[in-house]
Amino acid sequence: MNLSPDQVVFWQMGFFKLNATIAYTWALMIVLVLGSKLVTRKLSTQLQRSRWQNLLEIIVTGIKQQVSEVGLQQPEKYIGFLGTLFLFVAMASLFTIIPGYEPPTGSLSTSAALAICVLVAVPLYGIEESGLTEYLRAYMKPTFFMLPFNIISELSRTLALAVRLFGNMMSGTMILAILLTITPFLFPIVMSALGLLTGMVQAYIFSILATVYIAAATRVHKPKIESHKKLLNNDDDN
């Protein structure tokens, strides 16, 4: 029994290999992209629209609303990253209803990759919003001595992100596998349903935490930005 789909290797050539994680990720990507492409190929701007368009609109506007509720001013800017995080994790867990499928998020490599993406994206968005020096100065707040702790915090929360997602997804799959061997009929179904729920919750937690991190990074100098905006508005009025 494999603890991670990484261990199922279909093809390998030196450093390069094609394992189940990558393969299932590709499959997920194909499904997501093709589904989106098919639905958005003929979008209606009228009041009458297709069910699939309605579904996608609900998903996209839901993500956008969540992002803006956390406190990001321009959700359209972050929805590509944060929405894809949520959709990828959610779809990865949703597809567990397909027999023989293993979620790529059940691999620590995948969750680590996603956490690394967040780790990189947070400072990038922060620097974009408030400039490099301002962003770096935030690590030294309230005092210079807090710099190591801030860096440790940054790294540890990334680790926490990765391990939380991996643990939950892996445990769900593992419990299902173990239960299948003990009680083959009823419990796996219940656990599978529970796994779907935890998968959704994990997707939500992962993406919302990433949103909070980005919001925290971009909100470092918010008061100053607001006063600057006020000045700009006054100039416009004049």
Partner: peptide, 18 residues
């Protein structure tokens, strides 16, 4: 548990997906 090639590949995959 961590396969670094997979990590890199998943990062790339994720960015492509984004």
């Amino acid at each position: 548990l961590i396969d670094w090639f997979t990590v890199i590949a998943q990062v790339v995959n994720f960015l492509i997906l984004v």
